[in-house]
Design a protein around this nucleic acid. Structure first.
Length: 427
RNA sequence: GGAGAGAUGGCCGAGCGGUUUAAGGCGGUGGUCUUGAAAACCACUGAACCGGGAACGGUUCCGGGGGUUCGAAUCCCUCUCUCUCCGCCA
């Protein structure tokens, strides 16, 4: 949610920001301004009446104490009470419409974000490593994996349907090793606190991070008399750790890392990606979340992005980091870096991590505030998150980048201690 | 799943229709005293919104929502959560 006071006082800036996302919200902003005015007329009126009501209550109490009859003022009180009821209903409606509009507006892009219409306008900010030159035609992971007996799509379809997968033997082992490796790196070297959160969350949590109310269709909801959803990312439980809290400013930045499975229904087909591990209804991810002071958030976003990049470096996987253009960014985010890993079979860099600063957008929806002892009042924090990394896609990248001519796969050195010293899969 | 008891400020805890502007205590902050500290004493001690340049003033908030009433922390309904006992269970 945008800051209502900022929207009220900076109409043009807000219009411009939303237009850069390709959204013409002039109509919404006008309605919002009207509601804002009505609200600010109603509140003082209502408060004045309540003040009178309080005074009248004292008067009755005083009279009763003195044994007098106070029923003479009851008629006036009754009329005022009726007026208060009516105004309250009116104010309620205004506030509901107002917050509905506010909740529907996306975040404003940060000034450093390139303006563009789509992913084509994203900009590469740096790259690392050189794509390997193969002296044979590299296979896709969706061929390599099944051939090695470590990946099985057909049996997954039998038990769960399309876009699920089964990992077997060294494949399952490598997935577990990757999770361990990533968690160790981020907790021991990057200072994040490991969290094991629930995989089911309520509606309020998803509203806090911005998945609801707009994107319910992308989520798996639990059947029966439950208002619970499978998490689409650990960003949801981690950011909601401090929902409706005022945290001690001295503890900032808060840094959390969690491994969780992620569940996304995302209807529709995506060509070749449907075949392999790239786009699944269920996938594993190690997620980084930070809650920071507003003035530190862009520094912290840079650090968080580097923390995610470090995983790829240690695994020896070539990648590039791109800053998303205004047209390609998610609606809750003010700035997003994607890490894209090299996939030899596609001869392309493909997204493996997304690191974003939501600024105060989620903090306002989820009411995450901080306050430093002695100095002033509670203030909304900034929140950010990034994959560190998507485990399934990392497995894909390893299989494809470390494959050998005979179809075996070398285990990256950094991962061997986590796999009982295994050096090669499939020999 | 069954039976029962609860939810009050940072924490504990009183209040059960109108001097509650939420008693009292603990904790915290500042001060007095002291060479310093402790103790004692004094003062202050949350959030949201509205008006205002600010100082400040006002309204709301006793788990959430709804109702009864001139008036609700207090009465009624409902939801959520917590605790105790029984059953089941990794």
């Amino acid at each position: 949610m945008l800051d209502p006071a900022f929207v009220r006082d900076h109409q043009d800036e807000v219009k411009r920001g939303l237009k850069s996302r390709g959204l013409d919200a002039d109509g919404e902003l006008e309605s919002l301004a009207t509601l804002e005015n009505r609200r600010r007329r109603l509140i003082p009126e209502l408060e004045g009446l309540k003040r009178e009501q309080n005074a009248a209550g004292d008067e009755v109490a005083r009279a009763k104490r003195q044994g007098k009859d106070a029923s003479g003022i009851f008629e006036a009180n009754r009329q005022r009470a009726q007026q208060i009821r009516q105004l309250s209903i009116e104010l309620d409606q205004v506030e509901q419409q107002r917050s509905g509009l506010l909740m529907s507006l996306p975040n404003l892009p940060h000034a450093s974000v390139p303006i563009g219409k789509s992913a084509a306008d994203n900009q590469v900010v740096r790259s690392w490593g050189e794509p390997r030159q193969f002296d044979f035609e590299p296979q896709a992971h969706s061929d390599l994996g099944p051939a090695l007996g470590i990946l099985d799509f057909e049996r997954a379809t039998k038990m769960s349907g399309a876009r699920f997968s089964v990992l077997l033997g060294a494949g399952a082992r490598m997935s577990r090793a990757l999770i361990d490796f990533m968690l160790d790196l981020h907790t021991r070297e990057h200072g994040y606190t490991e969290v094991a959160p629930p995989f089911l969350v309520n509606r309020a949590s998803l509203e806090g991070t911005g998945q609801l109310p707009k994107f319910e269709a992308d989520l798996f909801k639990i059947a029966g008399d439950w208002d619970l959803f499978l998490i689409p990312t650990a960003e949801v439980p981690l950011t909601n750790l401090h929902r409706a809290e005022i945290v001690d400013g001295d503890t900032l930045p808060l840094k959390y890392v969690a491994y969780t499975p992620c569940f996304r229904s995302e209807a529709g087909s995506y060509g070749a990606d449907v075949r392999g591990l790239i786009r699944q209804h269920q996938f594993d991810k190690v997620e980084l979340v930070k809650i920071t002071r507003p003035e530190d958030s862009y520094d912290e976003l840079e650090k968080l992005t580097l923390n995610a990049e470090e995983v790829l470096k240690r695994l020896g996987l070539p990648f590039q980091t791109v800053v998303l253009s205004t047209g390609d960014m998610g609606p809750t985010m003010a700035k997003t870096y994607d890490l894209e890993v090299w996939l030899p079979s596609q001869k392309k860099y493909r997204e493996i991590s997304s690191c974003s600063n939501a600024e105060g957008f989620q903090a306002r929806r989820a009411s995450i505030k901080f306050k430093t002892a002695g100095t002033g009042k509670a203030e909304f924090a900034h929140t950010m998150n990034g994959s560190g990394l998507a485990v399934g896609r990392t497995l894909v990248a390893i299989l494809e980048n470390y494959q050998q001519k005979d179809g075996s796969v070398v285990v990256p050195e950094a991962l061997r201690p986590y796999m009982g010293g295994m050096e090669v899969i499939g020999q």
